[in-house]
Amino acid sequence: MSVIAFAKNWNGKFKNSSFELVSYTKALANQLNTNMVVLSIGELAEEELKLLGNYGADKVLTVSDPKLNTLTSRAYADIVAKAAESVGAEAIVLSDNNSGKAIAPRVSVKLKAGLVAAVQELPVSLDPFVVKKRVFSGKAFGHVQIKSDKKILTIAKNCFGLVENPCDITIEEFAVDIDTNLFKVKIVEEEEQKDKVILSDADVVVSAGRGMRSPENWAPVEELAEVLGAATACSRPVSDEGWRGHEEHVGQTGKVIAPNLYIAAGISGAIQHVAGISRSKCIVAINTDPEAPIFSVADYGIVGDVMDVLPRLTEAFRNSKS
């Protein structure tokens, strides 16, 4: 018996979400009174793999075939399932991100293991095995029982945090046959903006809505984001109007995020928008209308015109840094 976590890397590097996954899985293993194994797929420097040891990992299995350096969900799922079988895993844990969403369902079918996505905390109970997950896009939580012997969880970002727990780590190559038939999807082209803060990873998000009045008015939003090292985001009307790209849309039908700090500028706070941000640790709202519903979910509010308030905030943050 054991539990296994699949720690994804991005171009050979782990992210905080990978370390959060390891922290969570270690705590789950303790709860279940068993040990944890972490699986890594793709070529990775030994120093990078050793970082997992800071969060409670004492054993890492790695499949360092260069064919696997980019995500191929079918092949990854095959390896995750085989590694889980080989260590006799009763629980398999992944991050609730693009790759977790692509891999976990396939592993569930392969192993006939019940899957719950977007889990918010450690299991509510172990027997029966019940976990709490986000439902209705953040408007509520559901308690779901997994009835199969093997269980699969994907955990929501920022649900658990990082727990430092330095361990001596052993790294072992996991020998597995890689079926070349599973590489039917070919990458023709790839574009990546290396310098941009990625919205789904960001600790601070500066988001703006129709209150900005025109797409030409975005400079104050971008300046504030730059000072804070934040990602930029927007409300649905703004992306529907084409003022900003769809990848910035936060809300029920866009991205659901959970940063430490969410600054909503000129966003009224429709129920669909709030669904996408309600798990933020702290929300700041700026709006001309004191009755705007965004103030009922915000921790701090400023009534005023975004075009005046944003530059003042940027200035204040800049001064506080120097």
């Binding site: 939580f141 559901g142 308690h143 003042r312 905030l313 204040a316």
Partner: peptide
Amino acid sequence: VLTESIKFELPQEKGACKMIDSESAEQLV
């Protein structure tokens, strides 16, 4: 069927929003 929904809960209500004067950006920081 591998999983079963047991119950639901609504998120905790947020406390009151602390309002800050629009001139006092430093206070918010």
